[in-house]
């Protein structure tokens, strides 16, 4: 079982990294969603895998799985959604403003070399 979870984490991460390295916003958003899955599963797995012992107290039950990673991951899932939504709206804005959905800077944009020689010489 551990092998399955670890390989699933690895495969999802590999897919996510490949998608994040694409040049269009939507692929990057998909990659980030996949990366969130992988990381959430990883964080959850740091509590080690236990079956049939949910951290809900019941009479006569002595073993429970570690609840702390679950609490961390629960909020991480919700925040992850918020982040995805922000990125999506930013991608949308960039598409409408710029006319395409490339994520790279256009050549010459954001190039600060014009100031490189301005190191303090008298005007």
């Amino acid at each position: 079982m551990e092998m399955l979870v670890a390989s699933a984490i690895g495969i999802m991460t590999a897919a996510a990294v490949y998608l994040i390295l694409r040049r269009r916003t939507f692929a990057v958003v998909l990659g980030m969603t996949m990366l969130s899955y992988a990381i959430n599963l990883f964080l959850f797995a740091t509590g080690r895998l236990v079956r049939g012992a949910p951290p809900v107290l019941a009479d006569g039950v002595a073993t429970y799985t570690d609840p702390l990673p679950q609490a961390l991951v629960l909020t991480a899932i919700v925040i992850g959604f918020g982040m995805t939504a922000v990125v999506v709206v930013m991608a949308l804005g960039a598409f409408v403003e710029g006319g395409d959905d490339r994520i790279d800077l256009p050549p010459g944009d954001g190039d600060g070399r014009a100031n490189a020689g301005d190191t303090g010489g008298a005007p």
């Binding site: 991460t13 990294v17 797995a45």
Partner: peptide, 25 residues
Amino acid sequence: LHGVVAVVAGGAFGALAYAIMRTGA
């Protein structure tokens, strides 16, 4: 090249997860 980077990252992350799950705290 991107595929190689992705596979290395995925492999490393998966291996780390496996190592954590197979060892105690």
